[in-house]
């Protein structure tokens, strides 16, 4: 039997993204290399405008790079037609948008079940999975509430439930704790962590060091470039401060 390395779920190879042209062009990302393996949780931190959302959008196939390649489970996104790309996004990729992106006229459960139903999952089964996802984010009792009758933090949790419903292999979350209090934010980290522990590749964009610290790897981005990376050592010695 051959030795299997860690399974690569997401690969960004020399990815650049420039918005606009000529004198007003903005280089949002510059030759970024990044891979996320199955079971790995990666956090992305960086100043406002450094390219975090741009990075996530490319990883989720919502945007295409100006140059470089994006691969999800070794499939080059550039080679996919619109339909194939949409199917990949529905089945394999869970995405939490910075501004939620929920359908206001649908209930929480309907919003969460939507990608499953679009993908042909029978309505009842999709509903069951949706309620289960809402339970994981702590709001099963709000399943039938309409979006515009929910608080910002509640909507944010619905958006997270929609990203983890079914067994998504790649979960991308852009500031998913912005509208949450610290206990709820902690709960969201537990959900993302357990998804990674169950084998998903997770990428989180956050401004909160406390949340980023749940990741196996924290990537620091500045002006569209990855400038550094912190990997947990799991070294008990770090816990030892000198006695006085």
């Amino acid at each position: 039997m051959s030795v299997q390395g860690p399974q690569q779920v997401l690969e960004l190879a020399k990815v650049s993204r420039t918005f606009g042209q000529g004198a007003t062009a903005v280089a949002a990302l510059r030759e970024v290399d990044l891979t996320v393996n199955a079971g790995e949780f990666v956090a992305v931190m960086g100043p406002s405008g450094s390219g975090k959302s741009s990075l996530l959008a490319l990883a989720g196939g919502l945007d295409r790079p100006t140059s470089g390649g994006v691969f999800v489970e070794s499939t080059p996104m550039a080679g996919l037609g619109l339909n194939a790309l949409a199917r990949l996004r529905r089945r394999a990729v869970g995405y939490v948008f910075q501004d939620f992106n929920l359908v206001p006229t649908l209930s929480a459960a309907e919003n969460v079940a939507l990608p499953l139903e679009l993908d042909g999952v029978p309505a009842r089964k999709a509903h069951r999975q949706a309620v289960d996802a809402l339970r994981q984010v702590g709001i099963p009792e709000l399943a039938h509430r309409l979006m515009d009758e929910m608080s910002g933090g509640q909507q944010q949790r619905v958006a997270i439930a929609r990203a983890i419903v079914g067994n998504r292999r790649l979960i991308l979350a852009d500031e998913p704790t912005g509208a949450l209090d610290s206990t709820t934010g902690h709960g969201v980290m537990e959900v993302l962590r357990s998804r990674a522990d169950a084998g998903a590749a997770v990428m989180l964009v956050t401004h909160e060091a406390r949340h980023a610290a749940w990741a196996d790897r924290v990537v620091f981005i500045r002006d569209g470039r990855i400038v550094d990376e912190a990997t947990a050592m799991h070294d008990p010695a770090v816990l030892l401060a000198p006695a006085d």
């Binding site: 962590r193 610290a213 749940w214 400038v227 912190a230 947990a232 050592m233 816990l239």
Partner: peptide, 19 residues
Amino acid sequence: QAQRTASMRALQDYTKSRR
């Protein structure tokens, strides 16, 4: 940045221990 990375590593380890 060097300090930020070092502090983040420690924070990751504390968080793991806590979990």
